[in-house]
Design a protein around this nucleic acid. Structure first.
Lengths: 341, 341
DNA sequence: CTGAAAGCGCTTACAG
DNA sequence: CTGAAAGCGCTTACAG
């Protein structure tokens, strides 16, 4: 049914239908409610495509996942972020479309296609690792974009972002482990560290330095981004782990799970022999056994502010550029010796 | 830029632009390629809303998540399913919109709003627990819908579905545990079992019965749907767990993680004292320590067939109704004593 | 307060 | 093979 047909049915004009269903106070309360009620009864809803074409608004926002993003089930941090965004955008009556930046179709990336075809009103971009073409597109400002989560290697002054302060997170881990002089400090990270991993390490070193402790080259272990790889890495370095008490800071929760499995298989006691702190606080690490001490990234805050900003920008409201670094906080669970500080 | 402006720029008509960019062979190869090339250079893409309004196709499909769905990060089975769908639909050049059935807006559920507003071309519906209004909408056939994953309490003859055969999964678990006469068999499930949990139990009992083994009422443990609740449940029944060797079949991987944590905390040896099989095979259960033996649901197959069917139905192709029950298969990992069968 | 009409940016039947 | 024109289903400036 079209609005013209629905109008004829009720004996009013198409204009009145449009006004009533869009809640315009131009049509008197009683009439408006009557029309809304009828619409509900017959199941009439204004055609989304026609509406969008006319108003230049789709009522949909996109979430751009990063190139290196494997999957929602493998990367629970992003899954969690996604959950929060979905919920938050629903409050603003927006639908959500997920987009993968690696996807290419007819020489345009999915992101570029969707922006240029005006399929969404705005984008939430996870991380800053996007191609030059995509960055140009963002800067051209066809559609508001907010960057979130982890900063890439370059930070652009002209963009809106809400990132997690990885350096500060590492610092908290360093300050905590600094209190245990008898534990050898280790850092496990990924090969070819990006800005984010580097900053986590730098913060860790800064925290340790307050206790006159330093990380030597051989205290840094490298693996690939995955549970198995971290497991293998610890197994390869078992004499290092077994030679005395160690305090390991892991680049991410994912790696930490591998580290933990390996240490348990080696017969280490956690946290007496091996202490472990990681970063992200993906929901499952509180549930595994033993549960992981980790740096919690304030996802809720990040999402709530990003969504509100995005909606304002879509509505054409003037907003000052937002460029924030949010502080993680240390959550102590079973993999650390918990002392009062 | 509009297609009219782009046409003027190239000195051809709007019709030719439309034909060329849609790949119509009506326009000669050379001209078509030239126009496509130019479009790429200037970044012109046909407006999605205008195109959709004209063609009555949006190029987007919806995924309807169930009412009881908490989150993508908590329910990794659905996250995994989502990943597969996203990837598969990308092959067919569709974008994906995620929709939550509980969400209500102006008295229409999000699902109903999106279908009636024609915001998507088709829907993949996870589970069959949808409201009467929503079911009516599906049957009215405005938009093709395929049901997937776990069957609800009622199965409708007129619908397309690809479900996992829960009964058969339980049967395999029962047959496996039947080979261990010295182990007391237990089943842990949720309060107020829905069809799916019931069928898993019935299959388990059928498998056990082939070994003359039966489940007594007190062999069935109940908890809520969550890791913690399963943990507490085992802790409450510790005398039962510690009184001898047990073989536990868990309704789901999520519960199994809680069960496993509890058994380890109770000092049980896994799998010597406690064997555990669960169902779903969410990606993380292979990574935890010890890794879970579980019934793998053939998600890839389910997704690939559902997507292909959905796309055909959207294209108006005649397809016979698909109503399938896919067989899970048993994956033995660390929580079972692995014998050759 | 209400309706007729123009126009959002496409596609496609039609005429040439 | 190509273009002019109609129309997809809305919203809104305009006139009353």
């Amino acid at each position: 049914m079209t609005s013209r047909e629905f109008a004829k049915m009720l004996g009013v004009s198409q204009s009145t239908i449009s006004r009533a269903l869009n809640g315009s106070t131009l049509v008197p309360d009683e009439k408006r409610h009557f029309i809304q009620q009828k619409a509900r009864e017959v199941g009439f809803i204004l055609n989304s495509q026609a509406k969008s074409l006319r108003t230049q608004k789709t009522g949909t926002i996109g979430i751009l996942f990063p190139k290196h993003f494997i999957s929602m089930s493998a990367n629970r941090m992003l899954a969690h972020l996604y959950d929060c965004i979905q919920q938050e955008m629903h409050k603003y009556n927006y639908d959500v479309m997920t987009v993968y930046s690696s996807a290419v179709n007819n020489d345009f990336s999915s992101f570029e296609r969707i922006v240029r075809a005006r399929k969404v009103d705005g984008f939430l971009v996870m991380r800053m690792e996007i191609s030059k073409e995509e960055l140009e597109l963002v800067k051209s400002d066809r559609v508001p974009c907010i960057f979130m989560m982890n900063a890439g290697d370059k930070i652009y002054n002209s963009l809106n972002y809400l990132f997690s302060d990885s350096e500060y997170g590492g610092y908290l881990a360093g300050r905590y482990f600094g209190k245990f002089p008898k534990y050898r400090k280790l850092f496990i990270t990924v090969y070819e560290e990006k800005r984010d991993a580097r900053r986590r390490r730098e913060g860790f070193e800064r925290g340790l330095s307050e206790f006159d402790c330093q990380l030597a080259d051989e205290d840094i272990l490298y693996c690939n981004l995955g549970v198995d790889s971290a497991y293998q890495c610890i197994m390869k370095n078992k004499q290092l782990i077994k030679s005395g008490k160690v305090a390991i800071f892991s680049y991410s929760d994912t790696l930490a799970i591998g580290v933990l499995n390996a240490c348990l298989d080696l017969g280490c006691r956690v946290p007496e022999d091996v202490q472990l702190i990681s970063m992200d606080d993906i929901p499952c690490v509180a549930e595994i056994h033993p549960s992981l001490s980790t740096l919690h990234i304030p996802v809720e805050e990040m999402v709530s502010e990003s969504c509100s900003l995005l909606v304002d920008l879509i509505d054409g409201k003037k907003r000052k550029r937002v460029q924030k670094w949010l502080h993680p906080n240390l959550v102590l669970r079973d993999t650390t010796i918990n002392i009062e500080s």
